[in-house]
Design a protein around this nucleic acid. Structure first.
Length: 516
RNA sequence: GGCCCUAUCGACUAGUUGGUUAGGUCGCAACUCUCUCAAGGUUGAAACACGAGUUCGAAUCUCGUUGGGGCUACCA
């Protein structure tokens, strides 16, 4: 069987959003499962919309997710510009392949599958306006092209003259009338479209003298020997055109198979998720943080504290499932289990809570040492004076309560810094009546404890409180308030063991002095 | 408007050859555990868009309606 070759082909028009990344992921999984190649190609045929830094952003995102391409990018993470053994089809940036497309565009004109068109943007715009006024719409097709300015209607010498003019020309694909194109989609099955509903798409643009997406895409997929095209559903309407292009080039035998992925929808289901949504939705839409030319910062999953494995896992499950009840998958397991047949046909809405749950699941699978390192990476200064044993004990105390590592400080910062103030609600609730006298006795008792371990404290302290009939809640919550600064948190005995006798007594004394 | 895709709990989805008490996860609620808050455990509420047809029998097949989405550029 022929080696599978799939590609991810983003345009550098800004940061890639999570939907784009999901497309890349599915391509990657498909390629790896088949032992094939995953190729990155930059589709920069729109010179107007080019945004600096997008290319690096795409590569950095793929790298973060651990799904680097096999072809198209070199070891330093740069797009390959010259052919070599590993990257025989370079360059992988379409703007650098212009000379290739020109030849193919002219070939289509020569074979009668395409024609030169000289209509200006203004002329076409006027026709569209006119049609709109009559509640219909203008389409450049078999019906209208005979009365428009193109190489089909103009005499040969006039065409020749116009081709030399500086005003330029476009090349349009000639779509035949009333033919049924039968297509196959790996996810959706058979699709049929009548060519009469299609229009004569521009293949070569006058504005920037570059091919349009359609031409460049088909030519590149052919030359790069792509076997499966896995892309977003927004391309489904142009599938007939692409079939017709393969046919016009005579490439039917090597035509790739197509799979169109449903779109990622906004949480309210109204419209597809787009990069313009930025942070308006209350969750990141980008894998990595992005700062635009106005200095506006858009959140990224990486910067928001998601583990890449969690992000990849949740992304994979947005529109695919293994058909079993397993939900946590490593990248290797995803490669093993993935299949296009199990990709869901309808659009999926992103759910922030579920995303957080995934991160929590991965956090729980991390070793304490890994979490200590991640915690230090975030809070280096404040943890500097403490050794790994101590930080590890702190992490173990609170790791079950966190979704993200960045929540750690809020959960266990009191183990590193004594409380500077006490939550007023807690003080009002517990610091009254005879509690001061009781706490003093408890402090005395703690001081006399030989072994200051969690189990001993737990057992003996409870014993003490019960024999005096002080009330567990009253005493323990007051102690927690003094130790932590607020009346919620881990078990008091746990906290005491980690802090140690000296620190515990110091904090109790402090609190009594300050609350008087 | 035209063309194409799509339709199961609030969300993600299982259901692939018609027969299930329509299952799971997130979220939600209750109970439990308990020195608080979480976490954990147990339980619960919660869905086949609608209408015809085929059939002994339809979430599943067919047609229609409705809803949702995409495309309709010399953008990708």
């Amino acid at each position: 069987m022929k080696q599978r070759r799939v590609r991810f082909a983003p345009s550098p028009t800004g940061p890639l959003h999570m939907g784009g990344l999901r497309t890349a992921l599915y391509n990657y999984l498909y390629a790896k499962q088949a032992g094939g190649k995953f190729i990155l190609r930059i589709e920069d045929t729109d010179s107007q919309r080019f945004v600096l830094g997008s290319e690096e952003y795409v590569i950095e995102s793929l790298r973060w997710c651990g799904i680097m391409p096999d072809e198209g990018v070199d070891k330093e993470g740069k797009i390959v510009e010259l052919p070599c053994a590993e990257h025989p089809h370079a360059p992988y940036r379409q703007s650098q392949r212009k000379h290739i497309y020109r030849k193919y565009a002219e070939q289509l004109v020569a074979t009668g599958n395409a024609y030169y068109a000289f209509d200006t943007h203004e002329e076409l715009e006027a026709l569209r306006k006119e049609a709109e006024a009559q509640k219909s719409s203008f389409t450049y097709n078999y019906h209208t092209r005979t009365s428009l300015t193109n190489s089909l209607t103009l005499p040969a010498e006039e065409v020749e003259r116009r081709l030399q003019e500086e005003t330029g020309w476009t090349i349009r694909f000639k779509i035949s009338e009333n033919r049924v194109v039968k297509m196959k989609d790996l996810i959706r099955g058979d699709i049929e479209v009548n060519t009469s509903t299609l229009d004569d798409k521009v293949l070569w643009k006058r504005a920037d003298e570059l091919p349009t997406y359609h031409l460049a895409n088909i030519v590149d997929d052919h030359l790069m020997e792509i076997t499966e095209v896995i892309r977003g559903e927004e391309w489904l309407p142009s599938l007939p055109l692409h079939y017709l292009l393969y046919e016009a080039f005579g490439w039917n035998d090597s035509q790739p198979q197509f799979a169109h992925l449903s779109l990622l929808l906004k949480p309210d289901g109204k419209g597809k998720l787009s990069k313009r949504d930025g942070d308006k939705l209350g969750f990141p839409v980008f894998p990595l943080q992005w700062i635009n030319e106005d200095g506006e910062i858009s959140h990224g999953y990486r910067e928001d504290g998601y583990f890449p494995e969690a992000f990849v896992n949740l992304l994979a499950f947005l529109g695919w499932n293994p058909g079993t009840e397993q939900e946590i998958f490593t990248l290797e397991e995803l490669i093993e289990a993935f299949s296009l047949e199990r990709v869901v046909k309808s659009g999926a809405r992103f759910n922030h809570d579920k995303a957080k749950w995934y991160n929590q699941a991965y956090l729980r699978r991390k070793s304490t040492q890994e979490l200590v390192e991640a915690f230090r990476a975030l809070e280096g200064e404040r943890l500097a004076a403490f050794d790994d044993n101590y930080v590890g004990a702190a992490v173990e105390l609170i790791r079950e309560r966190a979704y993200f590592v960045h929540e750690f400080w809020n959960l266990c910062g009191f183990l590193f810094e004594a409380p500077k103030e006490y939550d007023p609600t807690g003080v009002n609730k517990f610091w009254k009546d005879d509690i001061q006298e009781i706490i003093l006795q408890v402090a005395q008792f703690l001081e006399n404890l030989e072994t200051f371990s969690e189990s001993i404290i737990e057992e003996q302290l409870e014993n003490l409180i019960r024999t005096h009939g002080w009330g567990m809640g009253k005493v323990m919550n007051t102690l927690r308030l003094f130790l932590v600064g607020r009346s919620s948190g881990p078990g008091v005995a746990n906290i005491m063991e980690i802090l140690g006798k000296k620190e515990v007594l110091r904090r109790i004394c402090n609190a009594i002095t300050r609350l008087g």
